[in-house]
Amino acid sequence: MQAAPSTLDHTVFKTSAIDFAQLAERGYVVVPNFLAPHYCQLLFDYAQNLAATDWQQAGIGRADQYTTNTAVRQDKIRWLQRDFAPERAYLDMMDGLRVQVNRELFMGLFDYECHLAHYPPGAFYRKHLDAFKGRSNRILTTVFYLNPHWQEADGGQLVMYDERGRVLETILPEAGKLVIFLSDVFMHEVLAGNRDRFSITGWYRHNTSINGVIDPTR
C-alpha cells in the first residue's frame, strides 16, 4: 500500500470551494471535490487495508450511557490518532479548516475529533442528531467521503432533514465530497448501501473543559 503523506498543505484541499455565506445562512453546505483525488485515493486505500482488529463496533451515547445497538447503528469505526501518518495528515488538514471557519464565521471552534467509518453492505445508521442543544460542545459536523466511482445504485446516501422532518438533501457519498452542518440542528441518517462504504466523520467543538477534561460528561 502506498503511504499517505504526513502533511496535507493548502494545495490539496480547497477551502475556497466552501461557500461560507451559505453555511452561515442555512447551517449546512455540501462541497464536491474538496480534496485532490490522489489524496482521496490514499486515504481510501489506507482505510481498506486496516486490519479487522483496528475497528470497533460503533455505539450511541456517551460514558455510562454508551451502548451498541445494531438496530440503530451498524457501522464500525476507528478514531483517528496522531500516531499514524495518514490519520495525522487528515487531522492537520481539518485543523487548518477550523482556523479558516473561525476566521470567516467567528465560531470560536476549539478542537476537532473524528473517526473513520466503515459501513459493510446493508449497514445503516437510523435518523439521529449529533448533539442536543445545551448538552454537548459539538458545534459543526463534517463528513468526508472516500469511495471512488460511487453510483446512485450503490445506495448509502446521507439524508438530511429540516426541523419539520422534511428531506433537505439526499447526498451521494462520492469520493472527495465534504458535508458540513450544525451538529445540534439537522437530523440525518445513512441509508443502507450495496458496497463497503468508507467515510470520515468528525466534529468541531467549543472548549468546555473542566479540570483538564475536554467535553466532560454531564
Rank of each mutant, 00 (worst) to 15 (best):
V213A: 04
P173G: 12
V12Q: 09
Q41V: 12
L129K: 06
R26T: 13
L8G: 02
R73F: 04
C114N: 13
D111C: 08
S16I: 03
R205A: 01
Q151F: 10
K177P: 06
S6C: 14
G134P: 13
A85N: 03
A3E: 13
R62Y: 10
A175W: 07
A58P: 06
L97V: 03
N211W: 04
G193P: 07
T142Y: 07
Q41L: 12
D184V: 01
R164H: 12
N33W: 03
D9T: 00
G108D: 03
Y28N: 07
R218N: 14
L129R: 05
V213H: 02
D75F: 05
S183L: 11
L191M: 13
A89E: 09
A175S: 14
G108C: 04
C114P: 11
R197I: 03
A36W: 02
R62W: 05
D83S: 15
N207Y: 10
G96L: 08
Q22G: 00
K127A: 12
G165W: 01
Y90L: 09
I171S: 01
V101A: 03
W79H: 09
G61W: 04
A47R: 07
T67Q: 15
H206N: 07
T67Y: 07
A192W: 06
T67K: 15
E25N: 14
A36L: 15
A117R: 00
L182K: 13
M160G: 02
V31K: 05
R138Q: 11
W55V: 06
T142D: 01
N137Y: 06
G59Q: 05
T11L: 11
F144I: 08
T201W: 05
P5N: 11
S16V: 10
N69L: 07
Q22P: 03
L168N: 01
Q2M: 06
N194D: 12
R98I: 08
D64C: 12
V99C: 12
E152V: 13
R26W: 03
A52G: 00
W203I: 13
Q22N: 02
D45Q: 15
R218S: 14
G176E: 09
E87T: 04
V12Y: 03
V101P: 01
E189F: 05
I18C: 03
P32S: 03
E174G: 12
T53N: 13
W79G: 10
Y90D: 05
R73P: 07
R166L: 13
A71Y: 06
V159L: 09
S6E: 14
H128C: 12
Q48G: 11
L91I: 06
A4C: 15
E169C: 11
L116P: 02
S183G: 10
H38K: 11
A21E: 11
D19T: 04
F20T: 06
M160H: 01
V29Q: 02
D130A: 07
D9E: 07
L43E: 11
E25A: 15
V101W: 04
S136Q: 04
K177C: 14
R82Q: 14
C40K: 04
Y112A: 10
M160K: 05
Q81M: 08
N49C: 09
R218T: 12
V31E: 05
Y66T: 06
E189S: 02
A17P: 04
